[in-house]
Computed example of a mutant assay.
Amino acid sequence: MSKALPAPRHADPAVFGRVAVLLGGTSSEREVSLDSGRNVLEALRARGVDAHPVDGIPALVQALVERRFDRVFNILHGQRGGGEDGVVQGLMDALGVPYTGSGVLGSALAMDKIRTKQVWLSLGLPTPRYVHLARGVDAATVHEAARGLGLPVIVKPSCEGSSVGVSRVLDDAGLDTAVELAARYPGELLMEQMVVGDELTVGILGDTALPSIRIVPKGWYDYHAKYQAEDTQYLCPGLEPAAEAELGALALAAFRAAGCSGWGRVDAMRDASSGRFLLLEVNTAPGMTSHSLVPKAAGKLGIGFGELCWRILEQTLDVADAADAEGATA
């Protein structure tokens, strides 16, 4: 699978019109989104794009009803006030405004880790064994589930990102605390077999899997390691050529199976004992901070941050062209 990317199709920033950079919001990932949004806004403006910040969905509704923008660069993270669960995508579809990233189906499905796993498993795509835990689950059921999977396990909310509410549970004594933490966030809970091995991620840009990144944190790759620590190592490409091609193909298959499009990131593990790749989740609006992984991977192909933002925004022109063609033939 070639990693070569064609040159950007447009050079004139005027083709984008007036662009809303949707950031902030009210989800648990607000601060990350604000950081990402500031970076995207600065990069687009540096390339001459008429881009403006819009903080959260209510502000976007007002702006789009007033027809103040031609398209949206969505860099909201999370659900319930975030921009990754399909709600804001449905809004923009209803108003006929092109936007970056996945549509309603891909956004909603990928935000729900349990349903994403169900789709992957139905297609024979590999993912760690798991148990779905309903909200309010009793302690006996939790401990029985852990015994069935075999400790250690990961306990997390099914519909959060950025490692929010996630716990590694090494022994029976830590289960109740882990479930209590995960239950602070909306949605169902997920208990997953903990895979020991390399943590990997693959950025997706259009139909291309970017070079993988192997993440080597000092300890566990939690929220601090993702966004604050300076000692986390990012090895890119993260694998030898044959395994790199295998993981890239698997990541693209997983991305498409979840109904995703445009750009995003697929996280996976490589089991140390078997060498097998196991899919963890899809992120449909990855971070664009100084610590974020898609920009690092794109950089390996010679695509700087500004060009990456431009390429992502260019995808909204494809969406608009397709909509115009459909309307012409209706």
Rank of each mutant, 00 (worst) to 15 (best):
M92W: 07
V104H: 05
S36N: 11
Y99M: 04
L76T: 08
D93W: 06
V61P: 01
P58G: 01
D70Y: 13
R38A: 15
H52R: 12
E31H: 14
R67I: 05
G82I: 09
R38F: 09
E84I: 01
H52D: 04
F16T: 03
T26Q: 10
V88M: 01
G101R: 08
G82E: 04
L41R: 14
G81P: 08
Y99P: 02
D12C: 06
G56S: 08
A46E: 13
R80G: 00
A14P: 00
A43F: 09
R18Q: 05
L23G: 02
V72F: 09
R47V: 00
S28P: 09
S27V: 08
E84Q: 02
P13T: 09
T26F: 02
R68D: 15
P58Y: 03
P53F: 05
G103C: 07
A51G: 11
Y99R: 07
V19E: 00
L22E: 01
R18L: 00
R18N: 01
L60Y: 13
A94S: 15
I57Y: 11
D55F: 12
V61W: 00
G103P: 08
G24Q: 02
A108W: 01
V49C: 09
D93T: 03
Q79N: 05
G25P: 05
L60G: 06
G86N: 03
T26V: 14
A94Q: 14
G56P: 06
E42A: 15
G81S: 08
G82P: 10
L95S: 03
R38M: 13
Q62M: 02
G83N: 00
T100P: 05
E42V: 12
G24S: 04
G48E: 08
M92N: 04
L22A: 06
A63H: 07
V49S: 07
A63T: 05
G90L: 01
V87W: 00
E66M: 13
A59E: 15
G90W: 02
P58I: 04
G83R: 01
H77D: 03
G78Y: 11
M92I: 12
Y99V: 02
V65T: 14
A14M: 00
Y99I: 05
V54K: 10
V104F: 00
T26P: 00
E84S: 01
L105D: 05
Y99D: 11
